[in-house]
Protein backbone atom coordinates (compact mmCIF):
# COMPACT_ATOMS: atom_id res chain seq x y z
CA UNK A 1 0.00 0.00 0.00
CA UNK A 2 2.20 2.80 -1.21
CA UNK A 3 -0.39 5.52 -1.55
CA UNK A 4 -3.47 5.87 0.48
CA UNK A 5 -5.97 3.39 -0.78
CA UNK A 6 -9.20 5.26 -1.34
CA UNK A 7 -11.43 2.33 -0.63
CA UNK A 8 -14.84 3.19 0.72
CA UNK A 9 -14.32 1.68 4.12
CA UNK A 10 -11.36 3.95 4.90
CA UNK A 11 -12.97 7.05 3.47
CA UNK A 12 -15.96 6.59 5.71
CA UNK A 13 -13.69 6.87 8.73
CA UNK A 14 -11.95 10.04 7.68
CA UNK A 15 -13.48 12.17 10.37
CA UNK A 16 -12.45 9.73 13.08
CA UNK A 17 -8.92 10.13 14.35
CA UNK A 18 -9.35 7.20 16.70
CA UNK A 19 -11.81 4.36 16.64
CA UNK A 20 -11.46 1.52 19.11
CA UNK A 21 -13.84 -1.30 19.89
CA UNK A 22 -13.58 -3.83 22.68
CA UNK A 23 -9.88 -3.35 23.41
CA UNK A 24 -8.60 -5.88 25.93
CA UNK A 25 -5.17 -6.27 27.49
CA UNK A 26 -4.37 -8.81 30.12
CA UNK A 27 -1.22 -8.88 32.24
CA UNK A 28 -1.20 -12.22 34.03
CA UNK A 29 -4.28 -12.26 36.23
CA UNK A 30 -4.83 -8.56 35.89
CA UNK A 31 -7.19 -7.46 33.14
CA UNK A 32 -5.70 -3.98 32.77
CA UNK A 33 -7.98 -3.01 29.90
CA UNK A 34 -11.30 -4.82 29.74
CA UNK A 35 -13.22 -3.92 26.61
CA UNK A 36 -12.59 -0.24 25.97
CA UNK A 37 -14.49 1.56 23.20
CA UNK A 38 -13.29 4.98 22.09
CA UNK A 39 -14.23 7.28 19.24
CA UNK A 40 -12.32 10.51 18.77
CA UNK A 41 -13.28 13.04 16.12
CA UNK A 42 -10.40 14.63 14.20
CA UNK A 43 -9.44 18.14 15.30
CA UNK A 44 -10.65 17.82 18.88
CA UNK A 45 -9.13 17.28 22.30
CA UNK A 46 -10.30 14.07 23.88
CA UNK A 47 -9.71 13.38 27.54
CA UNK A 48 -9.39 9.96 29.08
CA UNK A 49 -9.98 10.37 32.76
CA UNK A 50 -9.41 7.83 35.47
CA UNK A 51 -7.66 7.01 38.73
CA UNK A 52 -4.22 5.41 38.91
CA UNK A 53 -4.23 1.92 37.51
CA UNK A 54 -7.52 2.37 35.64
CA UNK A 55 -5.95 1.30 32.35
CA UNK A 56 -5.37 4.69 30.75
CA UNK A 57 -1.72 4.20 29.88
CA UNK A 58 -2.27 0.65 28.66
CA UNK A 59 -5.04 1.89 26.37
CA UNK A 60 -2.80 4.60 24.93
CA UNK A 61 0.04 2.15 24.43
CA UNK A 62 -2.23 -0.11 22.42
CA UNK A 63 -3.45 2.79 20.28
CA UNK A 64 0.15 3.91 19.73
CA UNK A 65 1.25 0.42 18.51
CA UNK A 66 3.50 -0.03 21.55
CA UNK A 67 1.40 -2.88 22.87
CA UNK A 68 -0.57 -5.51 21.03
CA UNK A 69 -4.22 -5.79 22.10
CA UNK A 70 -5.33 -9.24 23.28
CA UNK A 71 -8.78 -8.66 21.80
CA UNK A 72 -10.72 -5.98 20.01
CA UNK A 73 -9.45 -3.61 17.33
CA UNK A 74 -8.40 -0.02 16.93
CA UNK A 75 -7.96 2.22 13.92
CA UNK A 76 -6.08 5.49 13.64
CA UNK A 77 -7.50 7.57 10.76
CA UNK A 78 -8.87 4.31 9.42
CA UNK A 79 -5.61 2.35 9.67
CA UNK A 80 -5.55 -0.75 11.82
CA UNK A 81 -2.98 -0.56 14.64
CA UNK A 82 -2.13 -4.25 14.40
CA UNK A 83 -2.19 -4.77 10.63
CA UNK A 84 -0.71 -1.45 9.52
CA UNK A 85 1.41 -0.35 12.48
CA UNK A 86 4.09 1.35 10.40
CA UNK A 87 1.45 3.59 8.76
CA UNK A 88 -0.10 4.39 12.12
CA UNK A 89 3.34 5.39 13.41
CA UNK A 90 3.60 7.94 10.62
CA UNK A 91 0.40 9.59 11.84
CA UNK A 92 0.99 9.79 15.57
CA UNK A 93 3.21 11.46 18.13
CA UNK A 94 3.51 9.94 21.58
CA UNK A 95 4.49 11.74 24.74
CA UNK A 96 4.78 9.27 27.55
CA UNK A 97 4.07 9.56 31.22
CA UNK A 98 7.79 9.42 31.85
CA UNK A 99 9.75 11.64 29.50
CA UNK A 100 10.70 9.58 26.46
CA UNK A 101 13.88 11.45 25.67
CA UNK A 102 17.52 10.50 26.05
CA UNK A 103 18.81 11.52 29.47
CA UNK A 104 22.48 11.35 28.61
CA UNK A 105 22.23 13.65 25.60
CA UNK A 106 21.47 17.35 25.25
CA UNK A 107 18.13 18.74 24.10
CA UNK A 108 19.52 19.62 20.67
CA UNK A 109 21.10 16.20 20.22
CA UNK A 110 17.84 14.52 21.13
CA UNK A 111 15.82 16.49 18.62
CA UNK A 112 18.43 16.07 15.88
CA UNK A 113 18.50 12.31 16.33
CA UNK A 114 14.70 12.03 16.26
CA UNK A 115 14.59 14.31 13.19
CA UNK A 116 17.22 12.23 11.39
CA UNK A 117 15.30 9.06 12.22
CA UNK A 118 12.22 10.64 10.68
CA UNK A 119 14.10 11.15 7.42
CA UNK A 120 15.21 14.77 7.67
CA UNK A 121 18.59 15.72 6.21
CA UNK A 122 21.49 16.87 8.35
CA UNK A 123 20.93 20.61 7.86
CA UNK A 124 17.18 20.26 7.94
CA UNK A 125 17.34 18.34 11.23
CA UNK A 126 19.48 21.05 12.77
CA UNK A 127 17.07 23.75 11.66
CA UNK A 128 14.07 21.81 12.91
CA UNK A 129 15.69 21.25 16.31
CA UNK A 130 16.50 24.94 16.70
CA UNK A 131 13.00 25.91 15.62
CA UNK A 132 11.30 23.58 18.10
CA UNK A 133 13.58 24.59 20.96
CA UNK A 134 12.74 28.21 20.25
CA UNK A 135 9.04 27.38 20.11
CA UNK A 136 9.12 25.66 23.48
CA UNK A 137 11.39 28.19 25.19
CA UNK A 138 14.29 25.79 25.58
CA UNK A 139 16.90 27.57 23.47
CA UNK A 140 18.99 28.62 26.47
CA UNK A 141 19.17 25.10 27.81
CA UNK A 142 19.72 23.51 24.40
CA UNK A 143 23.31 22.44 24.98
CA UNK A 144 22.98 21.29 28.56
CA UNK A 145 22.61 17.59 29.32
CA UNK A 146 19.04 16.65 30.28
CA UNK A 147 20.11 15.50 33.73
CA UNK A 148 19.91 19.14 34.82
CA UNK A 149 16.46 19.74 33.31
CA UNK A 150 13.45 20.43 35.49
CA UNK A 151 10.34 18.29 35.15
CA UNK A 152 8.57 20.97 33.15
CA UNK A 153 11.48 21.42 30.74
CA UNK A 154 11.66 17.69 30.18
CA UNK A 155 7.95 17.50 29.37
CA UNK A 156 8.25 20.39 26.95
CA UNK A 157 11.18 18.76 25.21
CA UNK A 158 9.25 15.52 25.11
CA UNK A 159 6.30 17.24 23.48
CA UNK A 160 8.64 19.05 21.06
CA UNK A 161 10.06 15.68 20.03
CA UNK A 162 6.55 14.41 19.32
CA UNK A 163 5.92 17.31 16.96
CA UNK A 164 8.90 16.88 14.63
CA UNK A 165 6.89 15.03 12.01
CA UNK A 166 3.87 17.27 12.67
CA UNK A 167 1.63 14.28 13.24
CA UNK A 168 -2.13 14.75 12.88
CA UNK A 169 -2.75 12.80 16.10
CA UNK A 170 -0.88 13.29 19.35
CA UNK A 171 -1.12 11.07 22.41
CA UNK A 172 -0.30 12.76 25.70
CA UNK A 173 -0.10 10.44 28.65
CA UNK A 174 -0.66 12.50 31.82
CA UNK A 175 1.08 15.55 30.35
CA UNK A 176 0.99 17.60 33.55
CA UNK A 177 1.35 15.04 36.32
CA UNK A 178 3.94 16.31 38.77
CA UNK A 179 4.18 19.80 37.32
CA UNK A 180 3.73 22.98 39.34
CA UNK A 181 0.59 25.07 38.64
CA UNK A 182 2.33 27.62 36.45
CA UNK A 183 4.12 25.09 34.27
CA UNK A 184 0.88 23.20 34.05
CA UNK A 185 -0.96 26.25 32.73
CA UNK A 186 1.79 26.72 30.13
CA UNK A 187 1.37 23.10 29.06
CA UNK A 188 -2.38 23.63 28.70
CA UNK A 189 -1.74 26.65 26.45
CA UNK A 190 0.61 24.63 24.30
CA UNK A 191 -1.94 21.85 23.93
CA UNK A 192 -4.67 24.31 22.95
CA UNK A 193 -2.45 25.93 20.33
CA UNK A 194 -1.61 22.50 19.01
CA UNK A 195 -5.22 21.78 18.23
CA UNK A 196 -5.56 25.14 16.49
CA UNK A 197 -2.88 24.05 14.00
CA UNK A 198 -5.11 21.15 13.01
CA UNK A 199 -3.92 18.38 15.28
CA UNK A 200 -6.05 15.96 17.22
CA UNK A 201 -5.05 15.37 20.83
CA UNK A 202 -5.88 12.38 22.98
CA UNK A 203 -4.75 12.95 26.53
CA UNK A 204 -5.05 10.98 29.72
CA UNK A 205 -5.27 12.63 33.07
CA UNK A 206 -6.20 11.95 36.63
CA UNK A 207 -6.99 15.62 37.20
CA UNK A 208 -10.62 16.48 36.71
CA UNK A 209 -10.01 20.18 36.23
CA UNK A 210 -7.55 19.38 33.47
CA UNK A 211 -10.14 17.40 31.55
CA UNK A 212 -12.67 20.13 32.29
CA UNK A 213 -10.33 22.85 30.98
CA UNK A 214 -9.06 21.13 27.86
CA UNK A 215 -11.20 18.33 26.59
CA UNK A 216 -14.09 18.58 24.17
CA UNK A 217 -15.20 15.12 25.10
CA UNK A 218 -14.27 12.87 27.97
CA UNK A 219 -14.27 9.17 28.63
CA UNK A 220 -14.11 8.14 32.27
CA UNK A 221 -12.19 4.90 32.66
CA UNK A 222 -12.32 2.77 35.74
CA UNK A 223 -10.83 -0.69 36.11
CA UNK A 224 -10.21 -1.05 32.42
CA UNK A 225 -13.71 -0.07 31.33
CA UNK A 226 -15.28 3.11 30.03
CA UNK A 227 -17.87 3.93 32.69
CA UNK A 228 -19.05 7.23 31.20
CA UNK A 229 -18.54 9.14 27.98
CA UNK A 230 -19.68 12.51 26.68
CA UNK A 231 -19.00 16.23 26.67
CA UNK A 232 -18.04 17.84 29.94
CA UNK A 233 -21.53 19.37 30.25
CA UNK A 234 -23.27 16.11 29.47
CA UNK A 235 -21.32 14.36 32.17
CA UNK A 236 -22.08 17.05 34.71
CA UNK A 237 -25.75 16.94 33.80
CA UNK A 238 -25.80 13.20 34.25
CA UNK A 239 -25.00 13.65 37.93
CA UNK A 240 -27.66 16.25 38.52
CA UNK A 241 -28.45 19.90 38.61
CA UNK A 242 -26.83 22.74 40.46
CA UNK A 243 -27.57 22.99 44.13
CA UNK A 244 -28.53 25.96 46.29
CA UNK A 245 -26.79 26.36 49.64
CA UNK A 246 -28.15 28.60 52.39
CA UNK A 247 -26.98 29.45 55.87
CA UNK A 248 -29.31 31.23 58.24
CA UNK A 249 -28.10 33.72 60.85
CA UNK A 250 -29.90 32.33 63.85
CA UNK A 251 -30.07 28.55 64.36
CA UNK A 252 -33.61 28.85 65.71
CA UNK A 253 -34.85 29.77 62.23
CA UNK A 254 -33.40 26.64 60.77
CA UNK A 255 -36.52 24.48 60.71
CA UNK A 256 -38.79 27.23 59.35
CA UNK A 257 -36.28 28.10 56.66
CA UNK A 258 -36.00 24.50 55.65
CA UNK A 259 -39.75 24.05 55.34
CA UNK A 260 -39.89 27.10 53.07
CA UNK A 261 -37.11 25.77 50.85
CA UNK A 262 -38.90 22.45 50.48
CA UNK A 263 -42.18 24.19 49.74
CA UNK A 264 -40.97 26.75 47.20
CA UNK A 265 -38.44 24.65 45.34
CA UNK A 266 -40.54 21.52 45.65
CA UNK A 267 -37.62 19.30 46.66
CA UNK A 268 -36.35 17.61 49.78
CA UNK A 269 -33.48 19.65 51.20
CA UNK A 270 -30.60 18.39 53.26
CA UNK A 271 -29.35 20.02 56.43
CA UNK A 272 -25.80 19.72 57.66
CA UNK A 273 -26.14 20.57 61.36
CA UNK A 274 -22.51 21.30 62.16
CA UNK A 275 -22.31 23.99 59.49
CA UNK A 276 -25.91 25.09 59.83
CA UNK A 277 -26.22 24.77 56.06
CA UNK A 278 -29.29 23.90 53.99
CA UNK A 279 -28.59 22.30 50.63
CA UNK A 280 -31.26 21.75 48.00
CA UNK A 281 -31.05 20.88 44.34
CA UNK A 282 -32.08 23.74 42.11
CA UNK A 283 -33.79 22.74 38.89
CA UNK A 284 -35.16 26.15 38.10
CA UNK A 285 -33.13 29.21 39.09
CA UNK A 286 -36.19 31.45 38.76
CA UNK A 287 -37.82 29.89 41.83
CA UNK A 288 -34.97 31.15 43.99
CA UNK A 289 -36.39 34.71 43.70
CA UNK A 290 -39.66 33.50 45.20
CA UNK A 291 -37.80 31.75 47.98
CA UNK A 292 -35.76 34.81 48.88
CA UNK A 293 -38.91 37.00 49.04
CA UNK A 294 -40.63 34.46 51.29
CA UNK A 295 -37.62 34.37 53.59
CA UNK A 296 -37.58 38.17 53.82
CA UNK A 297 -41.31 38.24 54.61
CA UNK A 298 -40.78 35.70 57.40
CA UNK A 299 -37.88 37.82 58.75
CA UNK A 300 -35.37 35.01 58.39
CA UNK A 301 -31.94 36.50 57.89
CA UNK A 302 -29.37 34.76 55.75
CA UNK A 303 -25.72 34.57 56.66
CA UNK A 304 -24.59 33.12 53.34
CA UNK A 305 -25.98 31.99 50.03
CA UNK A 306 -24.29 30.19 47.19
CA UNK A 307 -25.04 28.10 44.12
CA UNK A 308 -22.89 25.12 43.46
CA UNK A 309 -22.56 23.62 40.00
CA UNK A 310 -21.81 19.93 39.90
CA UNK A 311 -18.06 19.51 39.45
CA UNK A 312 -16.37 16.76 37.53
CA UNK A 313 -15.23 15.53 40.91
CA UNK A 314 -18.80 14.69 41.74
CA UNK A 315 -19.25 13.09 38.34
CA UNK A 316 -16.22 11.03 38.93
CA UNK A 317 -17.03 9.98 42.44
CA UNK A 318 -20.64 9.22 41.59
CA UNK A 319 -19.74 7.09 38.60
CA UNK A 320 -16.83 5.20 40.08
CA UNK A 321 -18.33 4.67 43.52
CA UNK A 322 -21.57 3.40 41.99
CA UNK A 323 -19.51 1.05 39.94
CA UNK A 324 -17.88 -0.35 43.02
CA UNK A 325 -21.19 -0.90 44.78
CA UNK A 326 -22.71 -2.59 41.77
CA UNK A 327 -19.91 -5.04 41.32
CA UNK A 328 -19.27 -5.62 44.99
CA UNK A 329 -16.05 -7.46 44.28
CA UNK A 330 -14.46 -7.33 47.67
CA UNK A 331 -10.99 -8.38 46.61
CA UNK A 332 -9.72 -5.17 45.08
CA UNK A 333 -12.25 -2.88 46.67
CA UNK A 334 -10.19 -1.44 49.48
CA UNK A 335 -7.33 -0.57 47.23
CA UNK A 336 -9.70 0.94 44.72
CA UNK A 337 -11.57 3.14 47.15
CA UNK A 338 -8.32 4.38 48.44
CA UNK A 339 -7.52 5.53 44.94
CA UNK A 340 -10.84 7.28 44.53
CA UNK A 341 -10.49 9.20 47.74
CA UNK A 342 -6.99 10.21 46.80
CA UNK A 343 -8.39 11.80 43.63
Amino acid sequence: MSKRNASESTLAHDTWAVEARGLVKQFGDNRAVDGVDLTVRAGTIYGVLGPNGAGKTTTIRMLATLLRPDAGWARIFGYDVVKEPQIVRQLIGVTGQYASVDESLSATENLIIFSRLLGLGRAEAKRKAAELLEEFGLTEAAKRPLKNFSGGMRRRLDLAASLIAQPPLIFLDEPTTGLDPRTRAQMWDTIRRLVKTGSTVLLTTQYLDEADQLADRIAVIDRGRVVAEGTVDELKLSVGTSSLQLRVQSPTDMDRARQMVDQVLGVKSVVSPEAGKITASMANADQVTDLLIRLREARIHLAEMSVQKPSLDEVFLTITVHGVKERESAAVEDEHELEVTRV
Partner: peptide
Protein backbone atom coordinates in the same frame (compact mmCIF):
# COMPACT_ATOMS: atom_id res chain seq x y z
CA UNK B 1 11.61 5.87 28.34
CA UNK B 2 13.38 6.83 25.15
CA UNK B 3 12.94 3.31 23.77
CA UNK B 4 9.19 3.87 23.87
CA UNK B 5 9.68 6.73 21.49
CA UNK B 6 11.88 4.66 19.19
CA UNK B 7 9.12 2.07 19.07
CA UNK B 8 6.46 4.63 18.26
CA UNK B 9 8.47 6.14 15.39
Amino acid sequence: GVFDRFKSL
